[in-house]
Lab assay of single mutants.
Amino acid sequence: KLETFPLDVLVNTAAEDLPRGVDPSRKENHLSDEDFKAVFGMTRSAFANLPLWKQQNLKKEKGLF
């Protein structure tokens, strides 16, 4: 399991300012399950079932792209 970080560490943070080991294209993977659901309004599995373009739009909207 990946290390999780608080939302404010990941949202609207440039790649070079992210904690070590965080993939800038997969910031959402480093949210706790609770934060993930609070941000996206759905579970990880529901998010994973969305088309890629919709996932990317949601990530942009939430500052996690």
Score class of each variant (00 low, 15 high):
K1W: 11
K1I: 12
K1H: 13
K1E: 10
K1F: 10
K1L: 12
K1S: 11
K1Y: 13
L2A: 11
L2M: 11
L2I: 14
L2E: 08
L2C: 14
E3S: 09
E3H: 10
E3M: 11
E3V: 11
E3N: 10
T4P: 06
T4E: 06
T4R: 07
T4Y: 15
F5P: 02
F5R: 02
F5S: 02
F5G: 02
F5M: 05
F5I: 07
F5L: 07
F5E: 03
F5A: 02
P6K: 05
P6Q: 05
P6V: 04
P6G: 06
P6M: 04
P6F: 03
P6T: 07
L7A: 06
L7C: 06
L7F: 11
L7V: 09
L7D: 02
L7R: 05
D8N: 14
D8H: 15
D8L: 08
D8K: 10
D8R: 08
D8P: 05
V9A: 08
V9R: 10
V9I: 13
V9Q: 09
V9F: 15
V9P: 02
L10K: 01
L10S: 02
L10G: 03
L10N: 02
L10A: 01
L10Y: 02
V11M: 13
V11N: 04
V11P: 02
V11S: 07
V11F: 07
V11G: 03
N12V: 08
N12W: 11
T13G: 03
T13R: 07
T13Q: 08
T13S: 13
A14N: 13
A14D: 08
A14G: 07
A14L: 11
A14Y: 09
A14F: 06
A14T: 11
A15Q: 08
A15P: 14
A15M: 10
A15F: 10
A15V: 14
E16I: 10
E16G: 09
E16V: 09
D17W: 05
D17K: 05
D17N: 07
D17V: 02
L18R: 01
P19R: 01
P19C: 06
P19A: 01
P19D: 05
P19H: 03
P19G: 04
P19E: 04
P19K: 01
R20E: 15
R20Q: 15
R20M: 15
G21F: 05
G21C: 09
G21E: 11
G21K: 05
G21S: 08
G21I: 05
V22Y: 03
V22T: 04
V22R: 02
V22M: 03
D23H: 05
D23L: 03
P24Q: 07
P24K: 06
P24H: 06
S25C: 15
S25M: 14
S25A: 15
S25Y: 15
R26F: 11
R26H: 15
R26Y: 10
R26W: 07
R26A: 11
R26K: 13
R26Q: 11
K27E: 03
K27T: 08
K27P: 07
K27Y: 04
K27M: 14
E28P: 03
E28V: 02
E28A: 01
E28L: 02
E28C: 03
N29G: 07
N29K: 10
N29I: 08
N29P: 01
N29C: 10
N29Q: 15
H30M: 03
H30Q: 02
L31H: 00
L31V: 03
L31C: 01
S32C: 06
S32G: 07
S32L: 05
S32V: 04
D33L: 07
D33V: 07
D33F: 05
D33I: 06
D33H: 07
E34F: 10
E34W: 08
E34Q: 12
E34R: 10
E34K: 13
D35K: 01
D35G: 03
D35L: 05
D35A: 06
D35S: 06
D35Q: 05
F36D: 00
F36G: 00
F36N: 00
F36T: 00
F36E: 00
F36Y: 02
F36R: 00
K37C: 13
K37F: 15
K37M: 15
A38L: 15
A38V: 11
A38N: 13
A38F: 15
V39Y: 04
V39F: 05
V39L: 10
V39Q: 04
F40K: 00
F40I: 04
G41Y: 07
M42K: 01
M42Y: 06
M42W: 02
M42V: 07
M42S: 02
M42R: 01
T43Q: 09
T43L: 11
T43R: 06
T43F: 07
T43P: 11
R44G: 02
R44T: 04
R44C: 03
R44K: 13
R44H: 07
S45W: 12
S45P: 13
S45L: 13
S45Q: 14
S45F: 13
S45C: 12
S45M: 14
A46Q: 14
A46C: 10
A46G: 08
A46M: 12
F47W: 08
F47T: 07
F47H: 00
F47A: 00
F47E: 00
F47D: 00
F47S: 00
A48N: 11
A48G: 09
A48R: 10
A48M: 12
A48D: 11
N49G: 13
N49R: 11
N49Y: 09
N49T: 11
N49Q: 14
L50S: 03
L50Y: 05
L50F: 06
L50H: 03
P51Q: 05
P51H: 04
P51E: 08
P51D: 07
P51R: 02
L52K: 12
L52H: 12
L52E: 12
L52P: 10
L52Y: 14
W53H: 12
W53F: 10
W53R: 09
W53Q: 10
W53C: 13
K54A: 12
K54F: 11
K54V: 12
K54I: 14
Q55P: 00
Q55V: 03
Q55S: 03
Q55E: 00
Q55K: 07
Q56E: 12
Q56V: 14
Q56A: 11
Q56I: 15
N57I: 11
N57G: 12
N57Y: 13
N57S: 12
L58C: 06
L58A: 06
L58S: 03
L58N: 01
K59G: 01
K59C: 04
K59F: 03
K59H: 01
K60T: 11
K60N: 08
K60E: 11
K60P: 00
K60R: 09
E61Y: 05
E61T: 12
E61H: 09
E61L: 11
K62T: 09
K62W: 07
K62R: 10
K62P: 01
K62L: 10
G63E: 03
G63S: 04
G63H: 06
G63P: 01
G63N: 06
L64C: 03
L64D: 02
L64G: 02
F65V: 09
F65M: 12
F65N: 12
F65Q: 13
F65D: 15
F65L: 14
